[in-house]
Design a protein around this nucleic acid. Structure first.
Lengths: 208, 208, 208, 208
DNA sequence: AATGAATGAGGTTTCATTCAT
DNA sequence: AATGAATGAAACCTCATTCAT
């Protein structure tokens, strides 16, 4: 859409299933990095899975690291936009937290590869990229924290536990999902989300 | 350095800083694997850090994977023995859970490299080893779960949330600690343990 | 920049700084090949420096080798036409030699990249091209040699040293200029030319 | 010989024809770099010619550049020690210069690959190495220059041409030898040396 | 005349491991 | 128990070139 009006020049990009080469590369890389780890996945593995040649990959991505960075960028965009909708809601604060808490579980499960990769491969990014990702991730953390603080101010939530600690606590539980949740066993995503959310809220509503 | 100037008497010392060669290798490997990742750490890195040559390493360990497996074995032993003491206690069940929950936080922080490594590198083990580690880990999980079930049976803890889910929920929060807790910032380990434990117990004591 | 603000009338300008695309490519290639070497310079480097894309280069030149061959052709043309003017002169033979010897030094310094490249990259040409360049170069060598022989025949120059050897001797000194002469240090081109020429002539005029 | 008294430990190095692996590598690399150019010679080419594997090469040399640097070091050592013997002689100064001038020609021809490589590949060294080589080369240049200056001071040689320029002039002729001298055609090395030397001395003895 | 996409072969280097002592 | 030499497979990446417009 962005380029629909610009005159294309040069050989037109190849698309398969409506996906361009870089899209397919990101897709394939995400799957493989999550399954086997970044370092255990060779560039050859990625391009084979994407059905292109190595040259094509290096036409779009400066390096294997760059590919990883692109994946991170994509995941961060997705996470942020998802959370934003709950924060912006007009519902009472505890309801907004409960809904967001449940949703982040569902979203995590629906994007298992992304989440598996996220914390496992942070150290593979070059320092510059890592800092940037951490900063972006911090924004996400803070959006949730702001909701907790609002609940504490209103007196609906306990105040003896620092909001930061609450967020790290809950997100830990969430980020750990990829290591145990499996589609074939374990409760449905919505069930997990609802129970996790309830445990969080019940803990926060407890009197000091 | 400690022994460089001491006159050697009898058999030559096989230890440096009171550690034997294989011990130093495991120590060095743990540090490096946690910091840079298993695949990004070369055998050369490890033996350099341990102050020996590659030949020495292959004398004690069959392969680089074997070294990793040894680290896992050590970590598992440590975790299990730690938890066992709480399970075996005669205190009331909620107190035992609370104490164990707080302790696992402290122990995790006191062994950050081990915990960092644990979930990040599981997929690097060969399938056989991975299964074995997962089974051992399952025992750990189950020991905690048994305590939760005991609390649910006694009526002290809510029963509408599956004990398995509770354990995965809480251990998630714990295993996530290495990604955000830093000695220079953040609350003391005991404080984190106490608050985490309280959030868990308050959630579990909530009425359905 | 010269034409960026001029209103275009008629056909679009195909030149930048008065140079056509192929001219700019040769220019850029010469500069880069001389500085970094032929193999260490990528086609991308060249087209970037020339401000065009790779496609444009392959429109004008069959290959990277072809670009190098074109540079050689240009250099050879220049050298030959320069020498011809001295050979054709009516001055006494020793004066003609002295003038040509001095001039070749000045010309070499004024075209340092070309001369740097000339002997350093001969082996990069394909065999066919290399033979052709050597043959052309031989003509140049022979033109100079003919002058020396003429001086020997007339008795003005010593005959105990083969004219071929004289030419290889002197041209060696000249071709070595790019490795040590620098604009910021060292004598002015005309001074070098005059002294080199004098050393040559004094050696040749010496009695056997 | 250097290590004949040190107790060897570890697997003993393999030798073929009395040459160790690193020696064979340097030998093979010199030959190939001179013939095809540094960049056009692959590491595979070198190790094949030396009859070892790539791993063995990287056991002794940090990189392909390092191999080139080692070759340069060897050539410089050889050149310097050769010249030193003439400088130290007690013969009259003009005879010392004449002898050194003739000898450098013979030595150059006897080591064509080294000399071919020398100026053709200087720019392939990393900047640090290049500076070091240029400095070492400068010492060589200066040793010769000192002799010329001594001759100028004694009044035996002309003083109107700077000694630096004389050395650059003559060494140019010498370094150009590899581009034209061939064993099958052209005069014997000693003949070339004698004539070159005579041309130099006759030029320098000429009255101003 | 010129573009940007895509290829595929080949380059240097790394590295876990084996070997002879 | 430990060394330093040597292997060989595989890794990431570069690059001259071709292709469809």
């Amino acid at each position: 859409m962005a380029s629909s009006r610009s005159r294309r020049i040069g050989r037109p990009p190849v698309t398969v299933n409506g996906m361009t080469v870089p899209e397919r590369l990101v897709e394939a890389a995400l799957e493989l990095f999550a399954a086997k780890g970044f370092e255990s996945t060779s560039v050859q593995d990625v391009v084979d899975a994407a059905g292109v040649t190595k040259g094509a990959m290096y036409h779009y991505f400066a390096s294997k690291d760059d590919l990883l960075a692109e994946i991170y960028a994509r995941v961060l965009r997705m996470q942020l936009s998802q959370l934003e909708s709950f924060v912006a809601s007009r519902a009472p604060i505890t309801e907004r937290i409960a809904a967001a808490a449940a949703d982040v579980v569902v979203t995590t499960i629906e994007n298992l590869p992304s989440t598996t990769l996220f914390f496992r491969s942070l150290h593979q990014l070059n320092p510059e990229h890592e800092l940037q990702v951490r900063a972006e991730r911090r924004r996400y953390h803070d959006m949730f924290r702001e909701m907790v603080i609002e609940g504490q101010r209103s007196g609906e939530l306990r105040s003896d536990i620092d909001a930061d600690l609450v967020v790290d606590y809950y997100f830990g539980a969430v980020h750990h999902l990829p290591t145990w949740w499996r589609p074939e066993r374990g409760p449905a995503p919505e069930v997990v989300g609802e129970k996790f959310s309830r445990m969080l809220l019940d803990a926060l509503r407890a009197t000091d």
